[in-house]
């Protein structure tokens, strides 16, 4: 589904490379956890995959569903099934949550040549998804993320993910800052969305999340490279020993 080959990237208009040759293969149904210290390039990887303009790819390629990913605009990537759950979800005053959700869902449907959902059908559709993240209807009429608590923002990301039904979901530190109850709700939502056709890349700083979402693979990112890969046991090991092999301590934009 996703093949990352020797990916190098830097912040636009800056010289320093943050990703220094990442290679990773993700197949449908798999859950890959990417761990690593602050500044190792985890969030850069997520943002490059989603198409954020602040980063520039300097080398390497990414093949998504058999095609080069990079010519696609961010919205085209989203329409083709890539979803990024933001580390810092953006507050958008004046835009209703339900407006965003419906515009997003219908943009995807339109791109796939499916019929757009009308207001009534959409409401039925979204109410099922709300239950998944234990949110009530009042979330729909609030402005996007405005005045949301940290936990609410992350649940809102999972709600959007549930609504958009992506093929590849990238969770960028979705667990950071969550208390254990909020973490369980988020993890529970993600687990319910796991299926044989959907892949996840879960970026996290903390092993704790992986107690609830058990990954197929764990990779350790350090200094812009994957320095270790293993199965879910690797996460437990890291919990005890810390991030070893952190040979390159140069800080990068996490």
């Amino acid at each position: 589904m996703l093949e990352i080959k020797n990916l190098h990237a830097k912040v636009t208009e800056q010289d320093k490379e943050i990703l220094k040759g990442i290679s990773l293969n993700v197949k449908p149904g798999e859950v890959h956890a990417i761990m690593g210290p602050n500044g190792s390039g985890k969030s850069t990887l997520a943002n490059v995959l989603a198409g954020r303009q602040d980063y520039e790819v300097t080398q390497g390629e990414v093949i998504y569903q058999g095609h080069d990913l990079f010519p696609l605009a961010p919205e085209e990537r989203a329409q083709q099934g890539i979803f990024l759950a933001f580390q810092y979800p953006v507050e958008i005053p004046g835009v209703n949550n339900v407006y965003l959700l419906k515009a997003a869902v219908n943009a995807g449907r339109k791109a796939r040549g499916e019929k757009e959902l009308d207001a009534m059908d959409f409401l039925t559709f979204i109410k099922e998804k709300l239950a998944l993240v234990k949110m009530d209807n009042s979330f729909l009429s609030r402005a996007v993320n405005e005045g949301f608590s940290g936990g609410e923002k992350k649940r809102n990301e999972v709600l959007q993910m549930a609504a958009l039904e992506p093929k590849l979901a990238i969770l960028d530190e979705t667990d950071s800052g969550l208390d254990i109850d909020a973490l369980k709700i988020v993890a529970d939502g993600v687990n319910k969305l796991r299926n044989p056709n959907r892949a996840f890349i879960i970026i996290t700083h903390y092993q704790r999340l992986l107690d609830y979402i058990v990954p197929d693979y764990v990779h350790v990112l350090s200094g812009g490279r994957i320095v270790r890969s293993g199965d879910s046991k690797l996460a437990l090991e890291l919990e005890e020993t810390g991030y070893i092999n952190d040979s390159n301590s140069a800080s990068a934009n996490a």
Binding site: Q53, E75, L100, A104, A107
Partner: peptide
């Protein structure tokens, strides 16, 4: 720009995202 990218990352094209955010600015 962050809000524009956020909308784009949800599949909404840049033209439509611009209009939505402008509308929201006025709506307040």
């Amino acid at each position: 720009k962050r809000a524009l990218f956020y909308l784009q990352a949800r599949g909404i094209n840049i033209e439509q995202a611009t209009k939505i955010l402008t509308y929201a600015f006025a709506k307040e």
